[in-house]
Design a protein around this nucleic acid. Structure first.
Lengths: 232, 232
DNA sequence: ACCTGAACACCGTTCAAGT
DNA sequence: ACCTGAACACCGTTCAAGT
């Protein structure tokens, strides 16, 4: 894993500096920030680095690994809040993670496809586990719980993203999708799905944030209340 | 939505029969069954249908819509078991859904990216809701619960899939990934993630099936125990 | 009116050949 | 030894032109 910085000293010409894994990741993040992770392809990153795509393969083994590095780098910014009740701090931590995934188009989808396992992801996992343990949950059980919370958060962030994210009119896309679901629910055949038909209004009620908080509370309650099998 | 069957009667030549949405979906499922949904591209489906990719756009509006149609078609096979306690039937139903997603390479990942909202998906949603209501859960709460269960199941099925599914040696891929996670857990820096380091064995304990059943039970318990906000 | 060949604008990854 | 041009084998989608 070469972490070459600037070449020691070079006075020859405009000086195309030596590539490095770090620089490649930086440029990838930059493209993602501007146009979404979907656009941060090997070819595009190489172009931005003024070289051919083949050159990147010296430092990253493929696109998935590059995107995983991007995710783990950004995960470094998520930290546990200081004061307060363990459950509040847990909800805040998980919500911060969700917000990070919302912030960059394409990131959530990628995180889901990749199954992060970098250093910062493990730190986040450990902090979630720690807050559950602080709440009296048995450590093994807390581990399963942390896994569940990270999975659902990543998945729900990915759903939140527009189908073709990275476009400028993400707002429109999002509205379109919201309406697609609402339409499907409201126009459902009462024979096929009687409960959806009868309770359509209740199903569509509440702000996204109210729904999110319910998901969190329900999961935390279930995690705390459910012991692992004795056999394990 | 043209549903043209056989052309009325044609005796001219080998008779390339008229395209139809149904036939396109059938061929797509066939390719997926053999090589994974990732390989069921517009170009590939068109080739199998002995035409150019442009022709498909008369019947489907894009790749995502085609894959959504495939998913909803397959979802038609998932049904509620007859006898027994509501919770057992719920666990069985959700597990059947998971098994369906496991059965075809690429399907789970696609289901996650697409957010199904077809008829059969709504039926499945309604059945899950129904079992929760049968268990005494308030309908609006049951709706949120069904959403959560479907989301986590789809996401966990997608994780189960190998990173590059559709290949013949999926077994190897899967093992590789399992080991990657286990390695990350076991070789984690104790300073960074003290709880993971201390409880590594507990975290990796249990069969996948035991873990799966814990996820189900924890979520169902949390769904049943968590009322919606009064404000809603 | 219905269908589609050909084109446009891209991909990831490999490897032989250069410095 | 290190780097990369060029090629290989693909993509989704559009549209002008054909029947």
């Amino acid at each position: 894993m070469p972490v070459a910085r600037e070449p020691r000293s070079r006075r020859d010409r405009p000086a195309k500096p030596a590539l490095s894994r770090q620089w490649i990741v930086d440029v990838t993040i930059d493209i993602m920030r501007r146009e979404g992770l979907r656009k941060a392809t090997m070819r595009r990153v190489a172009q931005e680095l003024d070289t051919g795509p083949a050159s990147l393969y010296v430092y990253v083994s493929n696109t998935a690994e590059l995107h995983a590095a991007v995710i783990d780098r950004l995960l470094g910014d998520v930290a546990v809040a200081a004061g307060g009740h363990w459950q509040d701090r847990l909800e805040r931590l998980v919500t911060d993670y969700r917000d990070l995934l919302w912030k960059y188009p394409g990131l959530a989808r990628s995180a889901l496809a990749i199954r992060p396992s970098g250093r910062n992801f493990l730190v986040l996992f450990d902090r979630i586990m720690g807050l559950l343990v602080e709440g009296g949950v048995e450590p093994g059980q807390a581990g399963l719980g942390a896994d569940l919370l990270l999975l659902t958060t990543t998945a729900s962030a990915a759903e939140h993203a527009a189908p073709e994210d990275g476009d400028s009119d993400a707002g429109t896309d999002h509205l379109t999708k919201q309406n697609a679901i609402a339409d499907a629910v409201r126009s459902v055949n009462a024979q096929d799905a009687p409960l959806i038909a009868r309770h359509a209004d209740a199903l569509l009620a509440g702000t996204p944030d109210q729904r999110w908080r319910w998901y969190l509370r329900a999961q935390i309650a279930g995690i705390a209340a459910t012991a692992r099998d004795a056999g394990q």
